[in-house]
């Protein structure tokens, strides 16, 4: 489903070149649940943004569902983001003045499908239902708890039934109880067949996943099932 080969990403800051990814090659199949780990600055977010079609690699190839996306135009990438990818940001990124429902509906504004208003609301309600927020649809983000806010962001990512759900440190801003809630939600989505990729630097979080990919200095240094991952084992083993 995801196939990246020899991916490089170089940031230019003035005359300096920062090599954030140096030849990453990964395959991720349907219905996998993968954790990407690594020290700060190892290139996790860069890789994630590339997988989410928010950023283009400097070189290398990225095939998503058989489509080569690394050379697409901004408009084509926008369509891919809209139709195939659900992205959950660490900092939620909700529109603060809009209700939970309106926030979840946002991707439909830019959808190429034409839907009746009824169908749109039904879709948004269903997505909110899946994250257990059916009773908070009219609340604005400021009227929701941190965990609820993150669940709204997840509902928005799920809205278009994306091929993959990407989450860059989705629990970074949450306490341990809400982290637990969110992770359980991911688990049940995974159980329903959703492909999920999570960036984290907590072994606890990674232990919810099937597979762990470790990065260092922009390169893959380990790629194995979670129960074989040393860090995860030391933290209490795979569940």
């Amino acid at each position: 489903m995801i196939r990246i080969r020899d991916l490089h990403r170089i940031y230019r800051v003035g005359v300096e070149e920062i090599h954030a990814l140096r030849g990453v090659s990964i395959d991720i199949g349907r219905n996998e649940m993968v954790a990407i780990m690594g020290a700060s600055g190892s290139g996790k977010s860069t890789l994630m943004n590339t997988l989410g079609c928010l950023d283009r690699p400097t070189s290398g190839t990225y095939e998503l569902d058989g489509k080569e996306v690394s050379k697409m135009s901004s408009t084509e990438l926008a369509h891919v983001r809209n139709e195939m990818i659900g992205f959950v940001f660490q900092s939620f990124e909700l529109l603060s003045r809009q209700s939970a429902l309106a926030n979840v509906e946002l991707p439909l504004v830019y959808s190429r499908k034409s839907l009746s208003p009824k169908a749109r609301i039904a879709m948004a309600e269903e997505a909110l239902g899946r994250v257990g927020l059916s009773d908070r649809m009219d609340h604005t983000p400021s009227q929701l708890s941190g965990g609820q806010t993150q669940r709204v962001a997840i509902a928005r990512a799920l809205l278009n039934s994306p091929r993959i759900l990407l989450a860059d440190e989705p629990t970074g801003n949450l306490d341990s109880q809400t982290t637990e809630d969110v992770l359980r939600l991911f688990r049940s989505l995974h159980a329903e067949g959703q492909t999920i990729i999570i960036v984290t630097h907590e072994n606890d979080v990674a232990s919810y996943c099937q597979r762990v990919i470790r990065l260092r200095d922009g390169q893959v240094i380990a790629d194995c099932p979670a129960h074989e991952d040393e860090g995860v084992r030391l933290a209490g083993g795979a569940r």
């Binding site: 926008a78 369509h79 983001r81 809209n82 991707p107 830019y110």
Partner: peptide
Amino acid sequence: EIGLRKAVGATPGA
């Protein structure tokens, strides 16, 4: 906000 709209699929034209 523009970044978010783009992230959920707004094209440059939109």
